[in-house]
Nucleic acid binder design. Sequence first.
DNA 1: CGACCGATCGTCT
DNA 2: GACGATCGGTCGA
Length: 209
Amino acid sequence: MNRNYTKLDASFYEGDDVVMLARQLIGKLLITNRDGGRCSGRIIETEAYNGITDKASHAFGGRRTARTEIMYANGGVAYVYLCYGIHHLFNVVTNSKDIPHAILIRAIEPIEGKDIMMHRIGASTLKHNLGSGPGKVTKALGIRVEDTGFSLLSDQLFIADDGFVPMNIIATPRIGVDYAGADAALPYRFVVADHPAISAKSFTKKFIA
DNA sequence: CGACCGATCGTCT
DNA sequence: GACGATCGGTCGA
């Protein structure tokens, strides 16, 4: 494996087209350096949340609450929130200050620190689906709600480009946003088609799409 | 394999 | 007081 990579910088996260950025994150490495070791996974599934006009976004209508305030920060920080009282979901905040764009990382293919990630997940055997879902991505990599606001330019939590060129990226509607009316149909989810480690719900969604 | 269900709690109304 | 940008288990076919 090629261990040479370039950390994504502020100019990437400050880009103004969150849908394009979500697509560009496919194939990049999401890396954490904490709690006993370095772990990384290749991003294979993302979703764009396109600001105040996107009904599926927590920032729809320009809503600002204590929880969502970080979405209005300048791009390049983490937005992690608790879903269903159990799962921590990791988002990348993009664009500039006061424009609440975010990208949900929904699945990774485990690359480095597989033993550590297995331990965090509680898996006894290594399976391809160690990071096949947004809740599992954070659990495997040791990302928590307390990381909200954490800079992605740090060495503890960041995204890097190692030159890998993903194949067969397709766009589909997002998962679990049926409440968003017409916006639920927007093709804002990106996945590596037929990858074995995309999120479980994706399989049914893929054929609907 | 698909359908269903319980877990679990912060956030917003 | 209701409800999630979910997950893993179980049940039945």
